[in-house]
């Protein structure tokens, strides 16, 4: 199958180095401490943050830093086939861990000892790149909750099909069997917090794909920061000037 046309266009009409349309909304749920809704093309995810609050199981409490707890689940109707087990399967557990670890790298956990931060990520519609979308949504929800962080974590996937490095794969491209490289980045420090790939790729090509994914992360980070600033500005207007 041809994933990049001779004109250099992909199946959904994007150029190889183009990310899908990104849409983010903050504070969508009122009862949560922080929440964010994020769309990357047709992938739609909702992230919610509760906390920092008291550790629910006291034995898990950490005396020098916050406990970060993350749960990932997919809606049964989010994929082409109906999912029988929306959470608790091996993939969900792995993804929960991946999201938690990349968030822990950014949260200043040492400032919040003996507390717990819950991150819940729900995939509502999946079209490839759920991993990256979940990480991005989780960062925004954490920012909305006011959890202290080093930087926003931005994540993006990249792949390599038809001899072309492609940015931000959708489901069809993802299931083409080529490599799928997910990167999460702390954009200010340009430090990678997550790098995942399970496929073969020559080293020099890998570098090109990694470079592309990192550029994607930076573009997404800029967009998310913009959304965050806009949201904060709106809130500042709603709340009025702060008097001390």
């Amino acid at each position: 199958m041809e994933y990049v046309s001779p004109e250099g266009l992909r199946l959904d009409g994007r150029r190889p180095k183009e990310v899908r349309q990104l849409k983010c909304e903050l504070a969508v749920l009122h009862r949560a401490d922080g929440s964010a809704y994020l769309e990357m093309g047709n992938t739609k995810v909702l992230a919610t943050v509760y906390g920092p609050h008291e550790v629910s199981q006291r034995s898990q409490s950490l005396h020098d830093r916050a406990l970060v707890h993350c749960e990932y689940s997919m809606a049964t109707f989010s994929t082409g086939e109906r999912r029988r087990r929306p959470k608790g399967d091996r993939r969900s557990v792995e993804l929960s861990l991946v999201i938690r670890q990349s968030m822990e790298a950014a949260i200043l956990t040492h400032l919040l000892p003996r507390t717990q931060i819950d991150i819940y990520v729900q995939v509502l519609q999946a079209d490839g790149g759920t991993r990256a979308a979940c990480i991005n949504a989780a960062t925004l929800a954490l920012a909305d909750a006011g959890v202290p962080m080093r930087d926003l974590v931005a994540s993006c996937a990249a792949g390599y099909l038809n001899g072309t490095p492609l940015l931000d794969l959708n489901y069809v491209e993802d299931s083409a069997g080529g490599p799928d490289l997910t990167v999460a980045l702390l954009p200010k420090a340009e430090k990678v917090t997550l790098l995942q790939m399970d496929s073969k790729l020559p080293l020099d090509t890998f570098e090109a794909v990694l470079g592309l994914a990192m550029d994607g992360c930076k573009a997404i980070a800029a967009h998310m920061r913009q959304a965050l600033l806009e949201h904060t500005r709106k809130q500042a207007v709603v709340r009025g000037p702060v008097r001390l």
């Binding site: 739609k44 509502l124 519609q125």
Partner: peptide
Amino acid sequence: GAVSTADGSALVKIGSTTLLAGIKLE
């Protein structure tokens, strides 16, 4: 039609109570 992967779907909000219903056919 809030979710395009579902055969039928709806997002309902009553105040801030929010529910998402999706129907998948088999």
